[in-house]
Write a protein that binds this DNA or RNA. Structure first.
Lengths: 137, 137
DNA sequence: ATGTATGCAAAACATTTGCACCTGG
DNA sequence: CCAGGTGCAAATGTTTTGCATACAT
């Protein structure tokens, strides 16, 4: 249950936070901007401020509940941190996002870092391509 | 010569543009924010507006002369597009940036994209780690 | 109760744009 | 000369913050 996750993170269980988590869980598109989350909640009749959305997402990120990505432009998208690590490929035409995990790449990244004298602690990898799907402009 | 590059890109050879290219070439840190470029030029006694820096960098990017990276936060860093493709590893403590190229990863990225039905056209990959260097806090 | 969260409005950024003036070819 | 470039200031878009009020425990 989501209340658990909040409590575990040391956050009070409040309506706005539950709504945000619920939306991230149920939405078909899993990678949402703060603005999009806010608008969808407002459209669902919720009463929530944009600032609250940003504050909640920032806290969720600190607690490891969500991940913040900076796909291309300045705007950030948020995704529920569920399941194992993965990276993303984004269609340059329609913006569709697919997730993937490739062990070869992951291992190689650690090796590259070590070779350069770094201890790897994170990485951001986003591929951009044309998804050759019928409904893509 | 830099004037050539500008002319080839269909851009007029102007003082601000030459200064920006010159700075990107000579600076020890190769990955600079627009703000940093502007400040350094102002400090060198140049007369240049921040808007001009942004405009020039955007044009340079379109012309393939520079690359724009979005390392972590919203702020963009620019780098002269010299030599072959490479990716980056950034120290989470001191912000130092190292460049690297790994053929295994590059090949694998193309394969992953293909497997997902995408035609890969670009990627952004930045590793984050602790550079275990003496002068790093 | 009481410390934390919220909403709103205002601030803080990074970046872009409108416009009158300047400049390179 | 004239298209294109520049500087400034104002606009934009995203994210953060201050503060008085509302809520969870």
């Amino acid at each position: 249950m989501e209340s658990e996750e909040l409590r575990n993170a040391g956050l009070k269980v409040t309506t706005p936070r539950l709504k945000i988590l619920g939306l991230l869980e149920s939405a078909r598109e899993k990678h949402l901007t703060a603005e999009a989350i806010h608008r969808q909640l407002i459209d669902s009749g919720e009463e929530i401020g944009l600032a609250t959305v940003y504050r909640a997402l920032t806290q969720f990120e600190a607690a490891g509940l969500v991940t913040r990505h900076h796909f291309e432009g300045g705007i950030a998208v948020f995704e529920l941190e569920r399941g194992p690590h993965h990276d993303h490929i984004v269609c340059v035409h329609c913006g569709r996002v697919e997730e993937f995990y490739d062990k070869v790449i992951e291992d190689r990244q650690r090796e590259v870092a070590k070779k350069l004298g770094f201890t790897l602690c994170d990485h951001a990898m986003t591929l951009y391509g044309e998804c050759n799907s019928p409904e893509c402009p």
